[in-house]
Design a protein around this nucleic acid. Structure first.
Length: 282
DNA sequence: CACGAGACCTGTTCGC
DNA sequence: TGCGAACAGGTCTCGT
C-alpha cells in the first residue's frame, strides 16, 4: 500500500451493530441495485456458510439484484431467485468499486457484476458469514423482534422480559430475544433508561420496560442518524462515538451525575455503566 | 433454564 | 525499544 490513488483514509474498523448495518445497506442500495452478478470468489473458505462453493457458482451467475434490506444485523441482498445474506460480525465492511482494482489484504469474498463493478466483503477477523438461500424468512426465523418496528410495543416487551429471569445486558444482546442490539448500544440504552446491566429481567416494572424500549429506540435512531450523515459510503464512519455516555468511558465522569463510570465484565463482554444513575434495584 | 468458558480470528493498545 | 498480555463492534457450542 502507499501508491493507492484514492488516498485511503486510516479508518478504524466499523462497529457493525444495527445502526452500522442499516447505514451500509442504505449506501449499498443505490450503489448495487440492478446489478447482475456474473460470478463470485470466496477468498476465505469459511466465509461461505451455505451452500457449497460449487452450488454457489451454479446458482449465482445471471441473477440480478432486485432490492436490499436488513434484518437485525444481517444484510439482505434479494436476487431473482435467491437472497444473499451477509453478516459482518465483529469486523466486517463492504466496498463497491471497479472490478479491475487490486484486492486488499482483508478481502474475503468478491461478487463480480456485468457492469465491471464489484461488491467486496472485507472481514479482517474472518468471523463474518455469507449465505445464499432461497427462503430468507426461513433462514432468519429464529431472530427476535426488531426494536424499531412499531408493532413491537412496550407491553409486548414487558411480557417478554418477565418471561425470563436473566441479567438485562446479556438478555438484550440475545438475538433470539431482541434482534439487532450489540455491546455499545446496549450499554448506552441501559444507561439512558437508568437500569443496571445485571438487573434481573423478571424484576422489571411496566414503566421500566417502557423507558427501556424508548431508550433502545433512541440510541438506535441516533446511531442511524449519525452514520447516515456520511454520504460517501466508503468513508461512512459516522460520529456517534462522540455521543457515548458510558461505552469506553471507564473512570470518566458521568455526564448526568458526575460519578465515575464503571467497567465490569458480563457474559465476557466489557460492560460500562454509572453506579449512581443505574442502581441495581429501585 | 441461565450462565460461564472456550472457539473462531487478526490487529491494535497496554503495561512492564 | 520490545514483547507478551489484554482487548475489540458477534455468535455458536458445550459443560455445569
Amino acid at each position: 500500500m502507499g501508491d493507492d490513488p484514492h488516498e485511503r483514509e486510516e479508518v478504524e474498523s466499523p462497529m457493525p451493530e444495527l445502526p452500522e448495518v442499516e447505514t451500509i445497506v442504505r449506501s449499498l442500495r443505490p450503489a448495487i441495485s440492478g446489478e447482475t452478478i456474473t460470478s463470485a470468489d470466496i477468498l476465505w473458505e469459511r466465509t461461505l456458510a451455505t451452500p457449497t462453493i460449487t452450488e454457489l457458482n451454479a446458482r449465482l451467475p445471471g441473477q440480478t439484484i432486485r432490492s436490499l434490506g436488513r434484518r437485525a444485523k444481517h444484510i439482505l441482498i434479494h436476487l431473482d431467485h435467491d437472497t444473499l445474506i451477509i453478516h459482518l460480525r465483529m469486523s466486517g465492511d463492504m466496498r463497491v468499486e471497479a472490478d479491475d482494482l487490486p484486492l486488499q489484504p482483508h478481502d474475503r469474498a468478491v461478487f463480480h457484476f456485468a457492469s465491471r463493478q464489484r461488491l467486496v466483503f472485507i472481514n479482517p477477523r474472518k468471523f463474518g458469514r455469507v449465505w445464499l438461500v432461497a427462503d430468507p424468512a426461513k433462514a432468519l426465523s429464529k431472530l427476535g423482534p426488531e426494536p424499531l418496528n412499531q408493532s413491537f410495543t412496550s407491553e409486548v416487551f414487558y411480557q417478554r422480559l418477565t418471561h425470563h429471569k436473566r441479567q438485562l445486558k446479556p438478555l438484550l444482546m440475545d438475538q433470539h430475544f431482541l434482534a439487532g442490539m450489540g455491546n455499545i448500544y446496549t450499554d448506552e440504552a441501559l444507561h439512558l433508561a437508568r437500569l443496571h446491566p445485571l438487573r434481573r429481567s423478571n424484576t422489571i416494572t411496566p414503566d421500566d420496560a417502557d423507558r427501556l424500549l424508548t431508550a433502545i429506540r433512541s440510541v438506535l435512531e441516533e446511531g442511524i442518524r449519525r452514520n447516515g450523515a456520511s454520504i460517501d459510503w466508503v468513508y461512512r464512519g459516522g460520529d456517534f462515538q462522540n455521543d457515548f455516555q458510558v461505552y469506553q468511558r471507564t473512570g470518566e465522569a458521568c455526564y448526568t451525575c458526575g460519578a465515575e463510570i464503571q467497567r465490569i465484565v458480563v457474559g465476557q463482554r466489557g460492560t460500562h455503566f454509572c453506579p449512581v444513575c443505574q442502581k441495581r434495584r429501585n
